[in-house]
Nucleic acid binder design. Sequence first.
DNA 1: GTACGAATTCAAGCCAACTTGAGGTCAAGC
DNA 2: GCTTGACCTCAAGTTGGCTTGAATTCGTAC
Lengths: 149, 149
Amino acid sequence: MHFLDIGEVVARSGVPPSTLRYYEEIGLIRSVARHGLRRQFDHDVLMKLSLIAMGKAAGFSLPEISGMFGSDDRPDIPRDQLHARARELERQIIELRMLRDVIRHVADCPAPSHMECPSFRKLLKSATTTTASRSPKPPTTRARSARRR
Amino acid sequence: MHFLDIGEVVARSGVPPSTLRYYEEIGLIRSVARHGLRRQFDHDVLMKLSLIAMGKAAGFSLPEISGMFGSDDRPDIPRDQLHARARELERQIIELRMLRDVIRHVADCPAPSHMECPSFRKLLKSATTTTASRSPKPPTTRARSARRR
DNA sequence: GTACGAATTCAAGCCAACTTGAGGTCAAGC
DNA sequence: GCTTGACCTCAAGTTGGCTTGAATTCGTAC
């Protein structure tokens, strides 16, 4: 009976209790028992929370992540969906690299107005064309959580 | 004649009118004239919208993006701040690459349960630890958010 | 056996970034 | 000079992912 009290899960995972309750409410995780009122979780929940965190970071929505676990609670994701997401991540990476270059350019270019700097325009243009072909479903929370300091 | 009617901006940028108006409302872009009621934009706005799109794709909030432009509408940020951004982007890129690898592994690994696959655990662990090192006790999205989201 | 503190429930609130809808205005074409 | 249709304003609504708050319930320590 090495169940984890919710307080312990909070301490170990850094996920706030309200979030854990919310996740349970939407069926993303589940508690296995109560001690008084207190939820007790199986030890596995920590791993699951890691996967959830990664899924979020990768731009999956909670319902999507939810769908990634089979009834046995183990990861069970359609491969093509995963590959699609990997490609999407690849695209994001490319985009970030471009943005990084643009920003670096802005920092270093001595031209009075960037709009008139040919190499700035060029960077921007190449960025724009790749961005134009971006996926219909923009990841919203992903970069934020990935970016937290 | 150098001005772009909002309809034209919509057509060329793919950004819906409601969004353009919203951006103007929050001071992210501005219209330079009206033709009747219709907003007219300077040609530059297309460039700016590109930058905004990139910034969003990189996970910046609209206020943050807004801060990247000087009052003269030109990018105008202290160089070291820009370099700091670039470094942060670099870090983000590395993280996304890792995520991509984890996802690809999950897609391709034939192990019956990922939880038991050593290389999965390893990937997962390195992913979580690097994430954890940046935010030992993750501040909530809201708590951090004097800034955004 | 009472005080304490951590956890509980449930409903409501919040935030960013937009979108939607109702009702109004305008310039251009016929 | 009327119709058309793209645009306008302003307020309110939407979505996802939580958080907050008030009132309550426990187990544990004293």
